[in-house]
């Protein structure tokens, strides 16, 4: 099992250089059946990471570039009158796929954003009273530019909550960057990459992940963290029970990637910045940085 996850990570690392941690987090997010939000400046390799993951996992991949004039129909699909059949025929949009890469999601208008987020929640599309199931597995990898940039519609907190994880990539280190410059950004490798598993195997992995053991002692620790965020004056509002559940699921996936059949406190510590970062708003009004999460972790003793 660990061999599989290791192979996936190794393969993806051939394309995304020097970003093993981010690859692992993204994989954990997928294993925990969640949607992933990658936030970073343009040109940091967000799209490449999403694309690579889809390839390695043997999944169907669609990409939509969000713009301010993008309409819901552009991603969900549209019913067109078929003169021969004398009826409306549904033309599925790009959302009918395994992996949807929603590039620069915060450039689209709130209307389009919420259409996508609805699909993310329900995994089905309803148009003209007809419900169309999306293929399984289905998940969205969205990228966004930091909201301070011009021409963006920042996602409201309620919608940020739909994403299981939010990660950012950051600049590559010197060695990786040299490698990257040498092989022209790795586009060739991306084209040549072979899947390590197929979508059915991925679903099996997800099922195994779901069954990773979580002991009562660990839940105590998790609850202490939740309680701390609710009582601390550093945050505007504490973590919700859904956030608690998300933390648990991600920790399970992280334990699985580490090759363990049970979760340990270190797993929670590893994934907490990515899972809780976009859900906690610090009292100063800005979304909490990694710094305040690590302060939180240091303040909570492991029972």
């Amino acid at each position: 099992m660990q061999n599989i996850t290791n192979a996936i990570i190794a393969k993806a690392s051939e394309v995304i250089l020097g970003k093993e941690q981010q690859i692992k987090l993204a994989l954990a997010c997928i294993l925990a059946r969640g949607h992933l939000l990658i936030e970073d400046l343009p040109g940091m390799g967000k799209t490449t990471l999403a694309h690579t993951l889809a390839q390695v996992l043997g999944l169907q991949f669609q990409r939509v570039q969000f713009t301010s004039d993008l309409l819901p129909a552009d991603i969900l699909g549209v019913s067109v009158y078929d003169r021969n059949a004398a009826s409306f025929k549904f033309h599925p949009g790009p959302v009918f796929t395994n992996v949807l890469l929603a590039d620069e999601i915060n450039r689209a208008t709130p209307k389009t954003q919420s259409a996508l987020l609805e699909v993310m929640e329900e995994a089905q599309v309803t148009i003209d009273a007809m419900t169309h199931q999306l293929p399984q597995p289905f998940f969205v990898i969205a990228t966004q530019n930091p909201s301070s940039q011009i021409g963006t519609f920042p996602l409201p907190e309620s919608q940020l909550d739909r994403f299981l994880m939010r990660i950012s990539l950051g600049y590559p280190n010197a060695a990786s960057e040299q490698q990257l410059l040498k092989n022209n950004g790795g586009r060739e490798q991306l084209a040549n990459i072979r899947p390590v598993i197929d979508s059915e195997q991925l679903q099996t992995l997800q099922a195994i992940c779901h069954n990773i053991h979580v002991s009562d002692e660990l839940l105590d620790y998790l609850q202490t963290i939740l309680k701390y965020t609710r009582q601390s004056t550093a945050f505007n509002a504490g973590l919700s029970p859904r956030a608690g559940l998300s933390i648990k699921q991600c920790a399970q996936a992280w334990a699985m990637i580490a090759g363990r059949d049970h979760v340990i406190p270190e797993d929670i510590q590893a994934i907490l910045p990515s899972v809780a970062g976009h859900r906690l708003v610090s009292n100063t009004g800005i979304q909490s940085s990694e710094n305040s999460i690590s302060n939180l972790l240091k303040a909570v003793a492991i029972p």
Binding site: I264, E266, V300, I302
Partner: peptide, 9 residues
Amino acid sequence: KLAYEGVTD
């Protein structure tokens, strides 16, 4: 061992 430090760490 620090209070917040995991056993494995």
